[in-house]
Amino acid sequence: MSAAADSPWNGPPEFIDLLPDEVHVWRAPLSVSPSQLQTLAPILAAAERQRAERFHFEKDRGEFIAGRAMLRTLLGRYLHREPSQLEFNYGASGKPRLAGEDSSLRFNLSHSHGIALYAFSRDREIGIDVEQVRSNADAEKIAERFFSAQEVAVFRDLPACQREKAFFDCWTRKEAYIKAKGDGLTAALDAFSVSLSPGEPAALLHVRDDPREVSRWSLRELEPGPGYAGAIIVEGNDWRLECWEWKWQSDSNR
């Protein structure tokens, strides 16, 4: 996952300062060595370590630990707090929030098949999603069942060769929105529409029950890496995006 010359993912600055008009996105690989896992596991809370133990595969357990340690490490940097001391509570759909923190910091995270994205903002609700693009998704059936009528019409008009990318672009944009709202898959996914045509900018186009939502949020496509689709949605439109890549290299990196 090395950054290509035209990659939007840059090495992070030594000191992180998140300004009110900035949105920071971090990309991290979740595959870490066993020795790194031993270093990372103590950062997690006891309940998180217990949750890690439930995973069926060692690989998934390791990725969960790495993902949580990464979240805590980044939050600790933004808040100038010890990562292991942070506490979370969870909304009805599982969206994590900092417990007992009087902070303007907002965050959201997503992972898919070995890669994680973390998004941070100040006083702006935020939602992010990444998905591995793969051909075994039943895209036609999922679109018919879960997409809005407007999205289904656009999807059906696309040539077959463009449908896979359009499907994942559409889904990541939809999921970023429901995550920003704090809704899970119980949200009425057909009650709002996003752009999905190739070449069309990412946008929230229509929200059935509240048309003001369209101007409340701005949606952008992310480039998580080859074989992945991603999207981020943030309140307001007066923000700029900084994308940074995390590298698990040495203890001094953490």
Binding site: F55, H56, H113, E131, F146, W171, L185
Partner: peptide, 14 residues
């Protein structure tokens, strides 16, 4: 228990 993402879960429902 499993590394299933949201698209996997939608596939499961379908």
């Amino acid at each position: 228990q499993l590394d299933v993402d949201s698209v996997d879960f939608l596939n499961f429902i379908i």
